[in-house]
Amino acid sequence: MLWYEIIGIVMIIIGAIFLFLGALGIIRMPDVYNRMQAGTKATTLGALSVIMGVGIYHPAWIFKTGIISLFILLTNPVSSNALARAAHNAGIPLYEKSVVDKYAEDKEKIRAEEEKQNG
């Protein structure tokens, strides 16, 4: 085996472990926001590691896998951000042991300002 193939395989294995931990996280965490924390972070790094691992294993594919990774890196946080905002606005409560919720405190002010801007 060539040296870059070994690096690729190691990255694929690490990525698979992170994908598994991310999925375990969305089962174990108590509320939707904490699930998002585990789901987004661990699966993003896991997917990036697997995809770049395949790219390193096949050096001819490295640019294309680079584009896929860049796309995942840009869009995954955006979609979880949109989901978190939607969940909060749909009235999904935080985990009961949560410490603070500044967003709920400021929400009415934000809505009022947005309505003023929209006329």
Partner: peptide, 26 residues
């Protein structure tokens, strides 16, 4: 229990599936 929970599950599943398709290419 809630719809956002399901959406988070879907988001995770699709990311995993993308990685899986790349592995199939390999």
């Amino acid at each position: 229990p809630t719809i956002p929970d399901r959406a988070v599950g879907l988001d995770t599943a699709t990311t995993i599936t993308t990685a899986m398709i790349v592995l199939f290419a390999q």
